[in-house]
Design a protein around this nucleic acid. Structure first.
Lengths: 390, 390
DNA sequence: TGCTAAAATGAAACCAGTTTCATAGGGTGC
DNA sequence: GCACCCTATGAAACTGGTTTCATTTTAGCA
């Protein structure tokens, strides 16, 4: 072979090597340099001339090595000498080379991408309203970025346009499910993914038989702790505010914790339940107004999530009940707004940062067949003003 | 050629056609059927046996056509007869075939993916706190899904890990920038993308010289309308609450609208400015407390965004000032929480649904070189309780 | 210095589609 | 009956990397 050119002045034209094989052109495909040939195939793009992007063959030529060596060097493969690695890196920098991820993914059968699928009740659109999910979204993004994975995001708008074949079409290596509402409908579909050996994790209560895939907070324990705190502050008529239908098993677990704590203290269960599947400020507001007229006096409210608790505080204020003097309030989630309500909201914190980390970590473990260790996030009580106990 | 099999019972094994070309195997690569051959190459995966996924060659064989015809039929290419299309579709369904997007992207030089790059001040993390951006995120996701595009999402955590080469490495066809804070630092980098002919759009005020790429609300007009409304309700001492440093040019525009409206009515400018680059409830809360002590009585507050306005309401309540009786409050954005504050917040609505649509629409226009039409979203005043004028 | 194992490299196959190009077949106009 | 065109199709090139396999270099050691 001709002695490799270490530095190729821009525009230099090398005579093509004679092609000994007439049937199939050399892999370099004619273009032996990424610089545009004057006057050829150069329709002006939206801005300036569109130059052919450099390929690993161009890097190889410039660095004086073979293309396979370029590939190895750029991936920091073990079998490359330091000297070669340097030369390749420099050539790549010089030509502003970027790998074509599609070619890479195609051959390596790996995408380095995770897909985040946000499901939601099409009517209430809860996942988009509740800041808790934004927080999860953010931590998942960061966790996957930290591990060098890209994140595809998709909202399930209806149960029909089911984009679980993100994995089947090799767009992503694994799936993360996250959302609120219509849980059962999704769980059913999600669970079936295992059959087609698609790696996935879900934020939500464990479904029997699929231990590794379901990751969530310890909702029972969290709620128990919050209600115990209210009891310890002397509250005796504590209402639970939330929807415990099958739509949202998290809320059901929190209700269980609430009932357990009351049971320990021999206090009555007071339910501010409602049929609405949503869990917004508005719903909490309404529910507490209904409760006040119906159940007699209360001295505390435990909200199944912060938005409900905040709505309750607004409703209480409307009825001239003071928080926390007349009615103490505790929420669940610790959304970013919780410290800024008035009074600041006491709540059970879900550690979204840890949750995002765990989801991504466990998904990656599933992807390459390593065993999964934890699937539960511990919660913590954050005491602020709304429970009267700072 | 052998007569094509119209229907191939599962498990049927056809003798391989004699390979006339010894140097290079037929494109079908030996496997003439995706069904696993018993006992061969079948290490058990995490669950069950891992079967080779069907390729377009498998579909071709089952449907009795060539592989290129399969490709055309599945893409609804014009040059396929209805009969063929049906047969191919059926075969694909039967084998549960999904295209490999990496192969498709590689050859077609198109990814059908957009990348959403959320930039933010690394300290304040505003983009993740402000529900407005969640709303934008949601509408952008929906807009791109509606057009059949996937969405990659990435948070710029520092100005260093600049992932603008999402396009360069062919991960995405175009980029959407969105965020709050550190605007100038990003605009500088973003603007340079044009030089490498990367398609992009940005949510933010227009930068001179790059008209098509910058899309935003008419902030001046919106603020003017809000302040005019306060004036029409008889308010005379109206404070502006927000950071008008170069970090956030949107806020500066809103300040301009505020000053203009006051000028029309001959009223004094009262600034509740602050140095903090953040724009949270907390900051609004603090800023209004500082203002009250300093500037004498006010009868209205115009917040540069809803979070600031909500913080202001909390601060006013703390000082026993009634909203709207003593001080009227108007915000900007119309975040989802705005109707549920107490009193409900009057605000300038940014139409995030339209904004997401426009961003995606214009980006797609840039991608395939069509001209761009609009780059501005109109705002609208939403009157609720906090301005005393429902 | 010679022998052997390990490290480094190059050539070519390979991933699974899309696109180009050539061609067969059917209908139409004259 | 023949030239012509248009539709439908197949064969093969092509996309740009990674991976396998064979070969060359280098290093270590007696």
């Amino acid at each position: 072979m001709v002695d490799p050119l270490r530095v190729l002045p821009p525009g230099t034209i090398r005579p093509d090597l004679m092609d000994p094989e007439p049937r199939r052109a050399l892999r370099g495909r004619g273009t032996d340099c990424y610089h545009p040939r004057p006057g050829e195939h150069q329709e002006a793009g939206s801005k300036g001339m569109r130059v052919k992007r450099p390929t690993s063959f161009d890097i190889a030529e410039l660095a004086g090595v073979s293309q396979s060596t370029v590939s190895r060097a750029l991936r920091n493969d073990a079998m490359v000498s330091e000297d070669t690695r340097q030369r390749v890196a420099q050539a790549a920098r010089l030509l502003n080379y970027k790998v074509d991820v599609n070619a890479r993914n195609l051959r390596s059968q790996k995408t380095n991408t995770l897909a985040l699928l946000l499901y939601e009740d099409p009517v209430t659109s809860q996942s988009l309203i509740n800041p808790f999910f934004l927080s999860m979204l953010s931590s998942i993004t960061k966790a996957s970025a930290r591990r060098g994975y890209d994140l595809l995001i998709s909202f399930q708008q209806s149960s029909d346009d089911w984009s679980a074949d993100y994995a089947a079409s090799k767009r992503a290596d694994g799936l993360i499910f996250l959302g609120y509402g219509d849980y059962l409908r999704y769980v059913d579909k999600i669970s079936r993914l295992d059959e087609v050996s698609t790696a996935f994790v879900t934020w939500g209560p464990v479904v029997p038989g699929q231990p590794g895939h379901f990751i969530g907070s310890d909702n029972i324990q969290g709620a128990r702790e919050g209600v115990r705190h209210l009891i310890a502050r002397g509250r005796k008529r504590i209402a639970f505010l939330g929807d415990i239908s099958e739509h949202c098993p998290e809320f059901r677990d929190r209700y269980t914790g609430y009932v357990e704590a009351l049971g320990e203290a021999g206090l009555p269960v007071i339910e501010a339940l409602y049929a609405d599947a949503a869990a917004s400020e508005e719903v909490g507001h309404q529910a507490i107004l209904n409760l006040i007229g119906r159940e007699g006096p209360i001295d505390a409210v435990f909200g199944a999530c912060d938005l409900l608790a905040i709505g309750a505080m607004n409703g209480l204020r409307e009825r001239s009940l003071r928080v926390p003097e007349d009615v103490a309030v505790v929420g669940f989630d610790d959304i970013v707004a919780a410290p800024f309500t008035s009074p600041p909201l006491t709540t059970i914190r879900q550690d979204t940062a840890a949750a995002g980390e765990l989801l991504v970590e466990n998904l990656l473990r599933l992807i390459d067949g390593r065993p999964i260790e934890t699937t539960q996030i511990t919660t913590s009580l954050v005491v602020r003003g709304s429970c009267g106990g700072a």
